[in-house]
Write a protein that binds this DNA or RNA. Structure first.
Length: 641
RNA sequence: GCCAGGGUAGCUCAGUCGGCAGAGCGGGUGAUUUGUAAUCACCAGGUCAGGGGUUCGAAUCCCCUCCCUGGCUCCA
């Protein structure tokens, strides 16, 4: 019998008979770990115990601890969920049921049935009951024809549709207990590994993500090998909720919404306004330093402007509809983007190649009609302010401009402590070039410039084909919120379309008119969203320069209020934002209140301080710093700005 | 927009079977004059999201609308 050589992690190269499965490898070479090994990463792929090892395979067994182990675990949990559903609700039709980042889901067609609290309890109970049977997973290979017949007999249209899309002649099925599923795997050895499950959410999901197709019920869940880990997971979720910007935003007086104003239209409260102003001032100064020119443009424009830009035709469903002047002779719209206004500024005078790049910046408020189900605190709203700028440049300047924008975004992120972000380059779908405007050569040049710029700036970015805007490729910066959802913040987009539509030109050194290239860019993306994410990242503990209130002055008793007022005035004169708590509460309570408001510094004032002309300084989070004169305190604060 | 779950005092939430709308925090007033994470007492505060229906009687059951939450789709 022929042998194959494989490399086992922690053991080295071994020679085994051809046809040896991963199960046999684990039993022979990892006997003491066989109860915790769930599968293995073979070369780059995750495989389960049915895998027959091949010559040259590098095999790394994985347990629950590894991400790949969790993937196997949760994928099998999805099958367990399906088994429970089929047993509780016979006749359920199944879509797909993958493992996801945190758990798994299964899309099912429940007919007229809905899933509520009661059903969720039942499903969880049934899953655990089935798991306890330790049903082994079995893998079977069927011909595609056999598979089609099986699902025709069972009456599962979704599975038939999946089969139609498979090109191979044979397909694999996994079976455990009473449930059989068309599935590529990988799966656990048996269901007994699953000791704790939680149905986390029930939601509608269109079949194959297509709104024209029927909507299935997506049942989300998560599972663990021990009950303790489930508890810990739920505890962490609770913790995350405390960082939710909607909760903190209210608590800290940053923003609110009013039904009368309208959904998705945030109202900035005084504390939020301070925060926003600080951020805008910071960006203003930084951009002026970098050669941007600030402009102001109105929030509305004649409909015609957006017909020129093409937004009215292309972006119609996201726009509030035209309204008219009192005599109804003119139609205006609420702008969904700032670029057309900036194009008009470009056009306001003839431009020479010597004027380029021209960088026009504005904190431009825009209004977009987002679908109601999509609104989410400050992270998705209908009225928001873009820290926008449009760079008009020559084609040969695109690379340098792009690099300098990346530098700006990285600078801004660093200043605000965003270290955990990812970058994504969106390029054309190479198989569907007619979807995009602009000629091939320009696109290729732009895509190359973006990738080159990212490389030269040492910015790792994943490239997504087919994600580009119709007018040009882009680079986006994404960060996660407290609940782990990814949001796009900063964006840099190359645009060949608008300069053409607005007939923008510049006089070249050759004394001929040329077409400039536009770069749309926004380091924050939207100020609303940025503040939302910033709240979650900092838990509302803003750095001193951003904190709406920087120093809380706390009196020990009424007797020291006069002195406290003098201290407050000195701090205000030095430019600090203060709050004097002269209520007749005890100092403990005052500290607690200041902590809850996340105020960076507290100045406690009692008998000693009033006599000596000092303050007893304390910083956010239990730290007493010491007693110092007011002047020393002001110096101390200034050092931290 | 679609699916599901929700909406009770400023906030967080309780309210059993359809039978007098509650608590804590916050707010006001008074007492207290306090030394580093909650002093005590009293008081005010409600169209139970809005509208309609069923019923002797609705926060509670049914229908419609609005809003919120989580997904889907979309997107800064």
């Amino acid at each position: 019998m022929s042998e194959v050589k494989v490399f086992l992690e922690g053991i080295g190269e071994v020679s085994v008979p051809k046809g040896t499965t991963l199960r046999e490898i684990v039993e022979k070479y990892y006997p003491d770990r066989k109860d915790e090994i769930l599968g293995a990463v073979v070369n780059k792929d995750i495989k389960d115990f049915f895998y027959e090892v091949q010559e040259g395979d590098r095999i790394r067994p994985v347990t629950w601890q590894a991400p790949e182990g969790k993937h196997i675990f949760w994928h099998s949990s999805a099958h367990l969920l399906a088994e429970a559903l089929e047993s509780l609700y016979p006749g359920v039709k199944f879509g797909t049921g993958p493992a996801i980042e945190n758990g798994f889901y299964y899309d099912v067609d429940l007919g007229d049935r809905t899933i509520g609290e009661k059903e969720i309890k039942q499903i969880e109970k049934k899953m655990l009951e089935l798991a306890r049977r330790k049903s082994p997973f079995k893998k079977r290979i069927l011909s595609k024809q056999e598979a089609i017949e099986y699902y025709k007999k069972k009456g599962d249209p979704y599975k038939l549709e999946i089969l139609e899309g498979i090109e191979d002649d044979v397909v694999s099925f996994y079976e455990h207990g009473n449930f059989v599923d068309l599935c590529r795997g990988p799966h656990l050895p048996h269901t007994g590994f699953i000791k704790a499950v939680k149905i986390t959410n029930v939601a509608g999901a269109y079949w194959r993500g297509d709104p024209s197709k029927p909507q299935l019920t997506r049942i989300y869940g998560i599972s663990f090998p021990t009950k303790e880990e489930l508890k810990e997971y739920l505890r962490r979720l609770e913790e995350a909720k405390k960082r939710d910007h909607r909760v903190l935003g209210k608590q800290l007086g940053i923003f609110t919404f009013s039904q009368n104003v309208g959904s998705g239209l945030p109202l900035w409260l005084p504390n939020g306004a301070v925060l926003r102003k600080q951020l805008e001032d910071f960006l203003y100064r930084e951009q002026v330093k970098r050669g941007y020119k600030f402009v102001y443009t109105p929030h509305i424009a004649r409909k015609h402007l957006y017909e020129i830009s093409g937004h009215f035709q292309k972006y119609h469903h996201h726009m509030f509809q035209p309204f008219t002047s009192p005599d109804e002779t003119e139609e205006y719209i609420l702008r969904p983007m700032n670029c057309p206004h900036h194009c008009e500024i470009y056009k306001s005078e003839p431009r020479s190649y010597r004027d380029l790049p021209l960088r026009l910046a504005e904190f431009g408020t825009v209004y977009r009609y987002e679908q109601s189900g999509e609104l989410s605190g400050l992270l998705r709203v209908r009225g928001f302010t873009v820290d926008d700028a449009h760079i008009f440049c020559r084609p040969d300047q695109v690379l340098d401009e792009f690099k300098s924008v990346i530098d700006l975004v990285l600078f801004v992120f660093k200043k605000l402590g965003f270290e955990d972000f990812s970058a994504q380059i969106s390029v054309r779908d190479p198989n569907n070039k007619e979807k995009y405007i602009g000629d091939d050569e320009l696109w290729e040049q732009a895509e190359k410039s973006i990738q080159q710029a990212a490389e030269e700036m040492k910015l790792p970015a994943r490239v997504m084909e087919g994600e580009a805007a119709f007018y040009g490729p882009k680079l986006d910066f994404m960060v996660r919120d407290a609940l782990g959802r990814e949001w796009q913040l900063g964006t840099i987009q190359v645009d060949y379309n608008l300069p053409q539509r607005f007939d923008l030109t510049y006089m070249g050194p050759d004394n001929k008119l040329h077409r400039p290239v536009m770069i749309h860019r926004a380091p924050f993306g939207s100020i609303e969203r940025f503040v939302g994410v910033l709240i979650e990242h900092t838990e509302g503990k803003f750095p001193l320069w951003l904190a709406p209130i920087q120093v809380a002055i706390l009196t020990i008793s009424e007797k020291f209020v006069d002195y406290a007022k003098q201290v407050e005035q000195k701090l205000k004169d030095a430019g600090f934002r203060t709050l004097l708590d002269d209520s007749d509460e005890k100092i403990n309570k005052k500290i607690l209140k200041a902590e809850k408001q996340r105020i960076p510094y507290m100045a406690v004032i009692g008998q000693r301080e009033a006599e000596e002309g000092t303050v007893a300084v304390r910083s956010r989070g239990r730290k007493q710093i010491g007693t110092m004169t007011v002047e020393e305190f002001i110096e101390f604060l200034k050092e931290q700005l």
